[in-house]
Lab assay of single mutants.
Amino acid sequence: MGSVRTNRYSIVSSEEDGMKLATMAVANGFGNGKSKVHTRQQCRSRFVKKDGHCNVQFINVGEKGQRYLADIFTTCVDIRWRWMLVIFCLAFVLSWLFFGCVFWLIALLHGDLDTDYKDDDDKSKVSKACVSEVNSFTAAFLFSIETQTTIGYGFRCVTDECPIAVFMVVFQSIVGCIIDAFIIGAVMAKMAKPKKRNETLVFSHNAVIAMRDGKLCLMWRVGNLRKSHLVEAHVRAQLLKSRITSEGEYIPLDQIDINVGFDSGIDRIFLVSPITIVHEIDEDSPLYDLSKQDIDNADFEIVVILEGMVEATAMTTQCRSSYLANEILWGHRYEPVLFEEKHYYKVDYSRFHKTYEVPNTPLCSARDLAEKKYILSNANSFCYENEVALTSKEEEEDSENGVPESTSTDSPPGIDLHNQASVPLEPRPLRRESEIGSRR
């Protein structure tokens, strides 16, 4: 089982795998120059863009038009607004034209077009017409509009002379109601789609790998820009990579689940303020055997998904993003964004995407760390350097704002901070800030 798991979770494809794949392509008759073999020097295209759209195009789909027309309502909801407006206008105009032609044909076959009612006051002739005051196609078209929109100006009306005319008036009224219901329903469904809710759900630009509770963890940050909550919010993550099976089958995008606390339930989050999602790199993680150097040379993509129900409509929305291997910062942490004021908490989104480097973060893999092949620094050293990194950030910001350097908390000259780390230190809580992250 261990060997199978290692093969499945191998992220960085070796040169031997690339040569094996190329040999397979030639042997199977696919070596026509169009096949692409992804190596370390040639990274694959992003499968999920940063804005959440999937970078996929469908080609050679059989009976595409028929399949889309069979699900016309979903098609109308998914198309762009400009095409929705075109369909909206065409549906009414074509129905008016169709029934206008029908009423014109009825008048033509009944002989109503030969009668001039402007110079004739004989009401008996008017009563013999199928539709009064309809003696041309324009008049028939206007009567069709008046019937379907129930305008009723009063000059044109159907008589009991022709039952077919009466039937067409009733039929057009029913068709008009159906068109109204369909168009209004599609427009309302399109307006109520929770897709735009994703514009106020954000992911951090970069993911980070750092120590948390004595273990290497992959972390990324999510935030909600609205005050309205995302009900039943939960997160998922998958690692996408290519691999070759033991039988020699090439899988271009193998999807591997990344555990973010599904078993323990901590994948469900209360997204009021930005939260750091934590994936513990343990023996079940696809990143277990990867060191910093392996991450730098790897070719994979981590897709992160945030799902929840919109509070206003109770409709489920899904926000997506992805991180390539070069977008994962090893040995970094996110800057705090949640600050405790006197009577409330304040979230500073200008710090949302910012990170700071944490010294002495192990550069080895989580496996080597678990097997004690890498000796961690003293816990006080880690905490102290973590505090120094934050303090230096604040000093830089104070210097930019014009604060005198004498007010900063610099260490005395001639003292090495790293050498001082081995000395037991008193706890130094942050002056006014605390970061709330997901705790395992």
Rank of each mutant, 00 (worst) to 15 (best):
F203Y: 07
F382T: 11
A25S: 15
Y117W: 01
Y344A: 10
N60F: 05
I375Y: 07
C54V: 09
T138M: 03
V235A: 09
S264Q: 08
F182N: 05
V37C: 05
D410S: 06
M211E: 15
H234Y: 03
T361E: 05
L113V: 08
N386Q: 13
S95L: 15
G152N: 03
F88W: 07
L369A: 02
I277K: 00
A325V: 03
Q41Y: 07
C157V: 14
N32T: 14
Y384W: 13
N419V: 12
N259P: 09
I305M: 07
P424V: 13
Y250L: 15
V278G: 01
I59D: 15
K195Q: 04
V278E: 02
Q57I: 04
K34V: 13
A298D: 04
K241F: 10
V37I: 09
H343E: 15
R221D: 01
E133H: 08
I302M: 04
I179N: 14
V278I: 11
E247W: 07
G185F: 05
A298Y: 03
E433T: 11
V303Q: 05
M191S: 04
D78M: 13
A25G: 12
S14M: 14
P252V: 14
S10E: 10
I295N: 01
N360Q: 11
D284Q: 13
D257V: 07
L97P: 00
I87P: 02
V169G: 01
G402Y: 11
V235H: 02
L97K: 01
H229W: 13
P362T: 00
Y334R: 01
I72R: 15
I87H: 15
L329H: 05
F352R: 00
S422F: 10
D120I: 01
Y334A: 02
T391Y: 11
I11Q: 07
E340I: 06
F73P: 15
S392W: 03
V26P: 15
A27R: 13
H110A: 03
C43N: 13
V26E: 14
R221A: 00
L97W: 00
S144I: 02
R67G: 07
A25N: 15
F300T: 01
N224Q: 14
D121I: 12
K50P: 08
S204P: 08
A22Y: 04
A233K: 07
I266Q: 14
K193D: 13
V56Y: 05
H332P: 00
E397Y: 08
N28S: 13
N326H: 09
V158G: 01
V158W: 04
T361C: 09
I174C: 06
F382V: 14
E387Q: 02
L201M: 12
M315F: 06
I184Y: 08
K373Y: 05
C54P: 14
N206Q: 12
L253D: 13
N386A: 14
F88I: 13
D296H: 10
I79V: 10
M24R: 11
T149S: 12
K342T: 06
K49N: 07
G18T: 05
Q148A: 04
D289A: 10
S136T: 07
Y68F: 14
D180K: 15
A325S: 09
T317S: 09
A70F: 05
T355V: 10
D289E: 09
L105C: 06
V134D: 00
T313A: 08
I295L: 14
G248H: 06
L230A: 11
F182R: 12
W96E: 02
G176C: 02
C162D: 01
L290E: 00
L240H: 10
A27V: 10
P274M: 07
R236H: 05
E405T: 11
A370C: 08
G331S: 04
R46S: 01
I277W: 02
E307M: 04
E405H: 06
L430K: 08
D289Q: 12
P286V: 02
S273W: 06
F103T: 05
K346C: 05
T245N: 14
T138A: 12
A186Q: 08
T409G: 09
M315N: 07
D17Y: 04
I151N: 05
G185Y: 04
G62N: 09
T409A: 11
A370E: 03
D119T: 01
S399T: 12
E63C: 15
K36D: 15
H279N: 01
A325F: 01
T313F: 07
S35E: 15
N419A: 13
T6P: 13
C101N: 06
E16R: 05
G331T: 00
V278Y: 10
R197E: 15
E371G: 05
A421L: 13
M84K: 14
I415S: 10
V310D: 14
G331W: 01
I436N: 03
A186I: 07
G152H: 05
S13P: 04
M191R: 10
V102C: 13
I183L: 13
K36C: 12
S322F: 00
T313M: 11
D410R: 05
W83S: 10
F167T: 15
R40Q: 10
G214E: 13
G176N: 01
A181F: 15
D213C: 13
R333Q: 15
S411D: 13
A91N: 14
D120H: 00
L216D: 00
F270A: 10
M84R: 12
A312C: 11
V166F: 02
T159E: 02
L105A: 07
D254R: 14
L108M: 15
W220Q: 03
Y117V: 00
I183Q: 10
I277Q: 00
K373S: 14
P336V: 09
G111Q: 03
S14A: 12
A129C: 03
F73I: 08
V358N: 02
D114S: 12
E396T: 10
K64W: 04
K372W: 04
D120A: 00
T6R: 13
V208G: 00
E397L: 08
Y153Q: 11
I277F: 09
E249P: 08
F300R: 00
Y356G: 02
L105P: 00
